[in-house]
């Protein structure tokens, strides 16, 4: 049971925002000491663990092609495509973005989106603009909800899209770990394939919730108009 201190160290270290590399290394050393390994064995464990985990870093092999298409305007082109969603309602803008984000992540293009790259400059303003067009004004608490859902669509899209792509850390971490520990032999592609049912479920569940967001906003505005008709009227 004492070895669980290592898990606790990871939790505490991440919670107080120490450099994650240091947290992971210290937790590893402490756990190994508690597990009865001597210093040379610990270094050995780090070395052989690193050597057998090299596949996890294979994502860097994809950087050259992503780099050159970014140089030639990949993100700008993606923004143009996403911009075509602008005529929809807030929930549908986000649904469209969810689809784009999930599909591009599934083919390895994680970098076309992101909170700094697309959510803040593009997705939120478009969703907010859609609400403004439909309702005439966007009070602060509704703005807050649209912001939260803009970031949420990005996270759900990328989390449940990227696992369909084989060169992603989580897939290779699985194969590395089970191949090293249990002498199995799993192909990353098999795992990526079995990520597809969850990817579809994530799209259906989150997509449904985004469509419901439109209905819930309709209701919210009806309530607003009923309680403070003057303010709502003025803003129009």
């Amino acid at each position: 049971m004492l070895v669980l201190i290592g898990v606790l160290l990871v939790i505490v270290g991440f919670a107080i925002r120490l450099n994650p590399l240091v947290v992971v290394t210290v937790a590893g050393i402490v756990t190994a000491l508690l597990g009865g390994l001597n210093p040379v064995q610990i270094l050995d464990a780090f070395g052989s663990g690193f050597a057998s985990s090299r596949s996890v870093t294979i994502f860097v092999a994809v950087l050259p092609v992503v780099g050159i298409i970014e140089f030639f305007g990949l993100q700008e082109q993606a923004k143009t495509l996403i911009g075509k969603l602008a005529k929809l309602t807030a929930g549908r803008v986000l649904l469209g973005y969810l689809a784009v984000r999930q599909i591009t992540a599934a083919v390895g293009l994680n970098s076309v989106g992101g909170h700094a790259q697309t959510v803040r400059p593009l997705v939120f303003p478009m969703a907010e603009g859609a609400a403004l067009r439909r309702y005439g004004h966007v009070p602060e608490h509704i703005k807050e909800r649209i912001k939260a859902h803009s970031a949420g669509a990005d996270n759900v899209g990328v989390f449940f899209g990227e696992d369909v792509f084989v060169a992603v850390g989580s897939i290779l971490l699985i194969t590395t770990f089970v191949d090293t520990t249990y002498h199995l032999h799993l192909e990353p592609l098999q795992l990526a394939l079995w990520a597809i049912p969850t990817a579809l479920a994530a799209f259906l569940i989150h997509g449904f919730r985004l469509l419901r967001l439109d209905k819930s906003l309709d209701k919210e505005y009806r309530k607003l108009e009923a309680t403070e008709p003057a303010v709502a009227g003025e803003a129009k």
Partner: peptide, 24 residues
């Protein structure tokens, strides 16, 4: 340095298992 993190987490996982965290 975050590029190295997944591989370090994988290494940690192997170490954890060697030390018997999973069994606990």
């Amino acid at each position: 340095w975050a590029a190295l993190l997944p591989q370090m987490l994988s290494t940690l996982g192997i170490l954890f298992t060697k030390a018997g965290v999973g069994t606990a």
